Computed example of a mutant assay.
Amino acid sequence: MGLNLEQIPRVKTISKADFITHYFKPQKPVVIERFIEDWPAYSKWNLDYMKEIAGHKTVPLYDDRPVDYKDGFNEAHATMKMSDYVDLLKREPTKFRIFLWNILKEVPELQKDFSYPDFGLRLMKGLPMLFFGGKDSYTFMHYDIDLANIFHFHFEGKKQCILFDQNQNKHLYKIPHSLITREDINFADPDFDKWPALKNAKGWICDLNHGEVLYMPEGYWHYMRYITPGFSMSLRAIARNPKNLMKALYNVFIMRNYDNVMRRLQGQKWIDRKNQKAITNTNRYLGSD
């Protein structure tokens, strides 16, 4: 038995009105299959092109090691030239990923290859971010600090996406004062004997292919696994739900700073305490549904 996951709806294309009515207002995810075929990026963007245009850049790399109290916020685990990193991706499986790589800052010419689509939401035009990964690399289950609406465009190969909304928090072994679940949960093949509450969680799943875009509503948890080497670009729009906007402000200005202070004061004890609390909090709800 696996997780209780529903396939994310798929459409070929969609109008702004239909997107707002059927997906944004009810806050449901959707995969749009043929939305960017007129972008130069659709035919140009692959790993070889990234190596050609950004091969000289030194890129920050992250893997799946557990959070350490000494790590700074989003502190890289390694660095490498983009050309060497692309060679690594194509040569063998690797846990190393790139995330939150700002196109405008790092390779401004890439912005000529795409446009900002009109979904009826105001996209943050200063924050087009790229994410790269090797075969079988994955992100921890997490949600974004600003609880934004996210449009996730995938290029080259295939990646698997598992989503949960914020109503599922009590089933997911969420770490307090953070944006992640327990890092030792394998969401691709969860151990229900060890993590029984996951049986109660209801979520969504899809495989994203080259040129497809996934809409992730505000605050959705997401786990991404690269089935083949590839990369994606996220465009985001600020949370419109006042409750989510307040949560985002709390996360940025209070929660993150509080967590950093406690790491400095208590070190690994703070991390261990939060990990244990994730189990205690979740077990409290087991059998209550």
Rank of each mutant, 00 (worst) to 15 (best):
P196G: 08
S232F: 09
C161H: 10
Y215G: 01
Y223T: 01
I227K: 13
G219T: 04
N209V: 10
G211V: 04
S178G: 12
D207R: 09
L172S: 05
I162G: 05
A188I: 10
L208S: 03
K170H: 15
I180D: 14
R225H: 09
E218Y: 05
D184K: 10
A201E: 03
I185L: 05
L172C: 08
A201K: 02
H222S: 03
F231M: 08
G203D: 02
L163H: 03
P229F: 04
H171E: 15
Q168G: 03
M216E: 09
I175R: 12
P190A: 01
I227R: 11
Q168T: 05
W195P: 08
P196I: 03
Y215P: 01
D191G: 03
Q166T: 14
V213C: 11
G219S: 00
K202C: 11
V213A: 08
Y173M: 09
C206H: 06
R225D: 06
D191W: 01
P176K: 10
K199I: 11
Y220F: 13
P229E: 09
I162N: 06
Y223L: 03
P190W: 05
D207W: 04
I162A: 00
L179R: 13
D207E: 11
P217H: 03
T228M: 10
F192G: 04
I180W: 13
F187H: 04
R182P: 08
P176G: 09
P190C: 06
R225Q: 12
L214T: 02
W221N: 01
N186D: 15
G230Y: 07
F164V: 00
F192D: 08
G219F: 03
S232V: 07
E212S: 01
G230M: 07
H210R: 07
H177P: 12
C206A: 09
E212C: 04
D189N: 15
N200M: 12
I185H: 01
L179Q: 14
N200P: 08
W221S: 00
C161S: 13
L179D: 14
N209E: 13
Y226H: 13
V213N: 01
Y215D: 00
E183N: 14
F192K: 05
P190E: 04
H210N: 08
P196H: 06
P229M: 06
R182H: 12
L198F: 07
